[in-house]
Write a protein that binds this DNA or RNA. Structure first.
Length: 243
DNA sequence: TAGGCCATCTGGTCCT
DNA sequence: AGGACCAGATGGCCTA
């Protein structure tokens, strides 16, 4: 019965260490089956390990009944050993998998940090969350690409914006294309018109936008895209989708 | 105290 | 078979 392992292996470390000394593995159950009841309650565990398997005194007891009993005991011990082996094998694989997973997540976080480091920084050194970093990077890349495109066209910022503005929109750029079809997570669900969310904060600074509208409003450090034409900066509410 | 963010563990699935 | 990837669960920490 693997019960002792199940109940004692509460942590990975416990189990990892217990699996390392497996070759000499002997469960408490085996010890109890093999040994006579201890004379005192505080018997040291060392004596329990004495005697190799098969060297018990049962063999010098004559009688088929005793033989059968001994066979049954051996079968039981073998089953316990194989189950424990299986359990500890699974355990050590799990521990290794956990370790790999941890490393993988650390690498992912390192890559995220590298991404943060090339994004425009903020005066208050606010660390972007993971999701903010990804969204901001996406928008930032889009904004840079847009800037390049305008530069290629040789258009001044104002004229360029004229061409960019959708007719139904005020001071607003079209949103960057969604990287996925999951419109909800990129905030387009609420804004069939890309300007819907931005209209309020732009027209009325006293009523700041909620996080459902967009994350960063005019004056927010996130507006400071290096290299972006100034007049384009004021259009950013529409291309910083959130939620 | 509730909610957000994060790290970690875990089991399942896919790939090599 | 073993590793990579993924998503769900859980618990800790922090902030409004």
């Amino acid at each position: 019965m693997p019960a002792p392992l199940e109940t004692t292996c509460l942590s990975d470390l416990d189990c990892a260490s217990s699996s390392s000394d497996l070759p000499g593995f002997l469960t408490d159950e085996e010890d109890c089956a093999r040994l006579p009841p201890p004379a005192s309650a505080s018997g040291s565990p060392a004596p329990a390990r004495r005697g190799a398997p098969g060297t018990s005194g049962a063999s010098d007891v004559p009688g088929a009944q005793d033989d059968e009993q001994e066979r049954r005991r051996r079968r039981g011990r073998a089953r316990v050993r194989s189950e424990a082996l299986l359990h500890s094998l699974r355990r050590s694989r799990r521990v290794k998998a956990n370790d790999r997973e941890r490393n993988r997540m650390h690498n992912l976080n390192a890559a995220l940090d590298a991404l943060r480091s090339v994004l425009p920084s903020f005066p208050d050194d606010t660390k972007l969350t993971k999701i903010e970093t990804l969204r901001f990077a996406y928008n930032y890349i889009w904004a840079l690409a847009e800037t390049l495109r305008l530069a290629d066209q040789g258009l001044p910022g104002g004229a360029a914006r004229e061409r960019l503005l959708p007719p139904q929109c005020g001071p607003c750029l079209p949103r960057p294309p969604s990287p996925t079809s999951d419109a909800e997570s990129w905030g387009s669900g609420a804004a069939a018109s890309p300007c819907a969310a931005a209209a309020s904060p732009l027209s009325d600074p006293s009523s700041p936008a909620t996080s459902e509208d967009f994350a960063y409003g005019p004056g927010d450090p996130l507006f400071s895209f290096p290299g972006l034409p100034k007049d384009l900066l004021h259009t950013t509410p529409c291309f910083i989708p959130y939620h």
